Computed example of a mutant assay.
Amino acid sequence: MDFEYFSILELTLSLKQVSKKSNTRTYTTSIKFNSTQRWKLFKEPIIQYDSTKLRANKLLEQTSTTKDRSDYLWYTLRFKQSQPKAKSDLNVYTHGHQVHAFVNGIYVASAHGSHKNTMYTLQTTVPLVQGTNNVSLLSVMVGLPDSGAFLERRFSGLRRVSIQGTDFTKYQWGYQVGLLGEGQQIYTAASSIRLQWGMYGSSGSQPLTWYKTTFDAPAGNDPLALNMNSMGKGEIWVNGQSIGRYWISFRTQQGNPSQSWYHVPRSFLRPKGNLLIILEEQTGDPLGITLDIVTADGQS
C-alpha cells in the first residue's frame, strides 16, 4: 500500500504545474537625500567618568547591566598622567559585538568580532595629556543569543583593559546604560523638536551622530526600501517606528554587505512630511541614501 500510495502521489505532482513569483527585484530611485540642506544632525555626547552614577571597581558584564534596555553600554575611567605621551598603547579585550574607543572626548578607534571570532581585542595607540585623562569605551551588542548550552554563563562586554602596560581591569569604572538620544527618544517627532539640531557640515560625518530629514511618500502602492549602502552601522526610524539595525560596513567574504536595502512599510507613512531619523555609529555618508521603489520582475 505504501508503494502504491507514493507512486500515485508522484504521478499527481508530475502532472501539476507549480508556479511561483519571481525573486528578482528591481529598485528604482524615487528620492535622493543627496543635499546637505536636507539633513540636520545631533552629535551624541561622549560620556565621561564624572557624569556617571553607576560605578564599580571592575568591568561589569554588559547584558546583566543593561537588562536588554539598550544595545549600548558606556565603560568610562579617568586617571592621571605625569607626562604627556603622544603614543600610548590601548588594548581592550572584549566579548561585545563591537567597541568604540574615545580618549578625552576624541574618537580613536573601533573594532568588532565575527561569527567565528566572538572574543577579540581592540589595539591602537592613543594620545595622553599631562594631568587627568578620560577614557570612554562604548560596548555594542547586536541582539542576544537565545539558545545553546550554558546560556546563563555567557559573558558579554569588556573583559580586560590596559593602557601603556598598566592593567585597568580592576580599576574604578563608571557606567551609563544606553545613549542620550535613546533616552530622549530622539527618533520621535515630539522629542526631535525639543532638541537642538545642527546643520550638516561640509567636513563629513563623525562617529555617533544622529541624522534627521523629512520626505513625502512616493505615489502608488509598490513596496519601498531605503538604500543604506553609503552608511556604516546603526539604526533607522521612520515616524518613530524602527525599521531595523543596519551594519553595512560588516562585509561578507565576497566584500559585500549582507543587506543594503531596508523595507519601509507603507503603513508607517503619511502623504507628506515623514520623519526619517538615523543613528550612525561610524562615519557613514547620509548624502548617499536613496528611497527606492521595489518592483518584481515577472513570474516563473
Rank of each mutant, 00 (worst) to 15 (best):
E4I: 07
L9H: 05
E10P: 00
L15C: 08
K16F: 14
K40T: 08
L41I: 09
E44L: 06
P45T: 04
K53R: 11
L54M: 15
S64C: 03
D68N: 09
S70P: 10
D71V: 04
W74K: 02
Y75P: 04
T76G: 11
L77T: 03
K80D: 14
K80P: 03
K87M: 12
T94D: 10
H95S: 09
V99W: 05
A101L: 06
N104K: 11
N104D: 11
Y107L: 02
A111S: 15
S114C: 01
L122S: 12
L122H: 15
T125E: 03
L128S: 04
Q130G: 05
V135M: 10
L137H: 14
V140T: 08
P145S: 10
F150T: 01
F150E: 02
L151H: 11
R154T: 11
G157Y: 07
F168V: 02
T169L: 01
Y171K: 09
W173P: 02
G174P: 09
G178Y: 06
L180V: 06
G181V: 03
E182C: 02
L195A: 03
Q196K: 14
G198L: 10
D216S: 01
P218I: 13
A219L: 11
A219G: 09
D222S: 00
L224Y: 03
K233L: 01
E235H: 13
I236K: 04
I236E: 04
N239D: 13
N239R: 10
G244Y: 15
W247N: 02
W247K: 00
R251Q: 08
G255D: 14
N256D: 15
V264C: 04
R266I: 07
R266V: 05
R266Y: 06
S267T: 15
L269G: 01
G273P: 08
I277H: 06
G284W: 07
L287C: 13
A296W: 15
